[in-house]
Design a protein around this nucleic acid. Structure first.
Length: 617
DNA sequence: GGTGACCGGGG
DNA sequence: GTGTACGGTCACC
């Protein structure tokens, strides 16, 4: 079965009329005939190049039928090398398919590009993205992948609804996220499908530069391998660790392209100065598109178009620096120029920090293009905005320091690792120290709650969170699932057997204990440590065959998880207290001395760090 | 701490 | 025949 959405917006379902191979061959022929009849310029789907096309090609080959998706006279699918797509060759190189005369657009590419900027999506599955973007219907049909065949045999109408909802969601995702690539395709001398999946540097900037040279009749510089100059990175400072109140974030908008424009930093081999001309032009286009978007009606096609252009320009402008730094890989790469950009960046950040500090704020942390600082108690928001504006006025015209946000409190832990409490009560956790895919749910929940209490100024609440979590562990109130860790399997059964004698690994021991001897490298499983050090596996309750639902087991190793609570989770709050106070807040209630001071009087601290901690990254 | 391998996503 | 081919995370050295 296949669902197709025509350019007119109607959805059609193709289904095989025969049985077995004959029916499947018939379906592939129907698909070819349908594509020929509708004759679309663009064929799009989610993971089109990673699943649908390689699947169809494989089945067509096995069944000995022609899969005709290309335009008249050029029916055969071709392949091109790609970094993502279908892994067809034994050496692991990947390819994407090309249907001559049509554009094969994968909405997954647009989703990856979108999430690169926003970092909001828990994963990139079609259903998740559709829900996130608000385009999933309220009564949308869901069926698990593994159950589709069985449901189809029982209730084909349900699968038809499911497939129809899928293609409608793909159309919605393409409409909302595909605009940038479509806008760029009208500007860059590359076909749409290449612009949609290429990186901005090699896929867009490079061809634009080449076109500029061709148009001016100037010879292109030869490729030059990098001369081994090491690439220096951005500045990263931790000024203070602990709890700060009245926190402000200021940052420079598009720092690197602004520095390139302001100080005229471009590739040395670019004698035409095409890169800087391009960046100047794209920034102007972006500003014009943003202004036009503001003037057009909300939700109008016009507005989406302008916003797409603006997003596309931002993407390309921001990759100009990446192009410079891509040592030796691209025609105009220039590590020295890239280093000059980062040097100016560090200089700018240092100037901003110094000027802010001299105006009476307490610096907390600074990273690349932005700085968090705390202001004195009596300052108002206009005071905060005024110092940022004063410092902004000291920077070059094109380098714009902006007031980015204000927060009631911050837990500054390490560079790139902190928690923020908004004035609206919203809690934001940043960095691997506070959110990790492998964190045990009970620990993650404790950490989130404890940080919220800490930033609210409620130290007894932090202690209570710790004691409650310990109690619930010791009373086995948590289900095994809540103490389990999600791990990715990186070894095969045979590979693990080779190292098993020297070092036992919990995930594989859990699989063995559960009687599972076959798995795929890359599979993710939930494992936990059981009493007596044995390994426990949480079976997906839908797949569990035996009558025991392991998710409801509670036979975990209490001491192990109590240690984990303290040594992995509670320590994230250590910088907020003096060492002695930390011991009091996180004292084991079973081992409390009678002379323990009360937590009610404990104050959080903010410890200053030595001022020169520049890290290259 | 740096480097290389591998994942994503689909049914 | 030659060049091209995403960005992030995690394991492992």
């Amino acid at each position: 079965m296949a669902a197709c959405r025509n350019p007119s917006g109607t959805t059609e379902i193709l289904e095989s009329r025969g049985h077995g191979n004959a029916g499947e061959a018939d379906l592939i022929n129907q698909l070819g005939a349908k594509v020929k009849a509708v004759d679309p310029d663009v064929i799009e789907n989610h993971n089109l190049h990673g699943f649908d096309l390689p699947f169809l090609v494989r089945r067509a080959r096995i069944l000995g039928v022609q899969l005709t998706l290309g335009r008249a006279g050029l029916p055969a699918l071709r392949v091109r090398a790609a970094r993502r797509g279908s892994a067809s060759t034994p050496d692991g190189r990947r390819v994407r398919f090309v249907a001559p005369g049509r554009e094969l657009i994968d909405t997954l590419d647009a989703v990856l590009r979108y999430d690169f900027a926003t970092r909001e999506l828990p994963n990139h599955r079609l259903k998740t993205v559709a829900r996130h973007l608000g385009i999933a219907g309220p009564d949308r049909e869901y069926i698990k992948g593994a159950q589709i065949y069985e449901v189809y045999r029982r209730d084909p109408e349900r699968v038809r609804r499911y497939a129809t909802a899928d293609v409608q969601e793909v159309a919605g995702v393409a409409r909302m996220l595909g605009g940038a690539a479509f806008a760029l395709a009208q500007m860059a001398p590359r076909r749409y499908e290449r612009v949609a999946d290429a990186g901005a540097a090699t896929g867009i900037i490079d061809p634009l530069l080449v076109r500029a040279y061709l148009r001016s009749g100037t010879a292109l510089p030869a490729h030059q391998p990098g001369d081994g100059t090491p690439h220096s990175g951005a500045a990263l400072h931790l000024f203070a660790a602990g709890v700060a109140r009245r926190v402000v974030k200021a940052d420079v908008a598009s720092l690197y392209p602004s520095l390139m424009r302001s100080y005229r930093i471009g590739p040395a081999r670019d004698h035409l100065g095409a890169m800087l001309t391009l960046v100047d032009r794209l920034v102007e286009l972006r500003l014009a598109a943003k202004a036009s978007a503001r003037q057009s009606a909300p939700e109008s096609a016009e507005r989406y178009g302008y916003e797409a252009v603006s997003a596309a320009m931002k993407l390309v402008v921001n990759s100009a620096y990446g192009y410079l730094a891509a040592g030796g890989l691209t025609r105009f790469a220039d590590v020295q120029a890239a280093n000059e950009v980062t040097r100016r960046g560090r200089e700018t950040l240092e100037l901003v920090c110094g000027e802010l500090a001299s105006r009476g704020v307490t610096l907390l942390e600074a990273d690349t293009d932005g700085v968090y600082f705390a202001v004195p108690d009596h300052w108002t928001e206009p005071d905060e905005r005024r110092v940022v504006a004063e410092v902004a006025a000291l920077l070059p015209l094109l380098v714009q320091l902006e007031f980015e946000g204000r927060y009631s409190a911050m837990l500054s832990h390490e560079p790139k690792n902190y928690a923020l409490l908004g004035y609206d009560g919203a809690l934001l956790l940043r960095g691997v120290a506070f959110r990790s895919s492998r964190a045990e749910p009970f620990g993650q929940a404790f950490l989130r709650y404890a940080v919220a209490r800490l930033l609210a100024g409620d130290v007894p609440g932090v202690r209570e969170a710790y004691v409650t979590t310990l109690d619930r562990l010791r009373g086995r109130h948590f289900a095994a699932r809540e103490v389990a860790s999600c791990v990715r399997l990186s070894k095969t059964w045979a590979q693990y057997l080779q190292v098993r004698d020297s070092r036992r690994e919990l995930p594989y021991e859990a699989l063995l204990a559960a009687g599972r001897k076959s798995w795929s490298v890359g599979d993710r499983i939930l494992v936990y440590r059981r009493k007596s050090g044995a390994a426990g596996l949480i079976e997906d309750s839908e797949d569990a065959v035996a009558g025991i639902d392991s998710a409801k087991e509670r036979d975990y190793d209490i001491d192990h998880y109590a240690r984990l609570l303290r040594q992995t989770f509670a320590v994230r709050l250590a910088c907020a207290f003096s060492p002695a106070d930390f011991e009091v807040v996180f004292a084991d209630p079973d081992q409390m001395s009678l002379f323990m001071p009360s937590v009610a009087t404990i104050q959080t601290v903010l410890g200053k760090k030595p001022p020169t901690q520049t890290v290259d990254c």
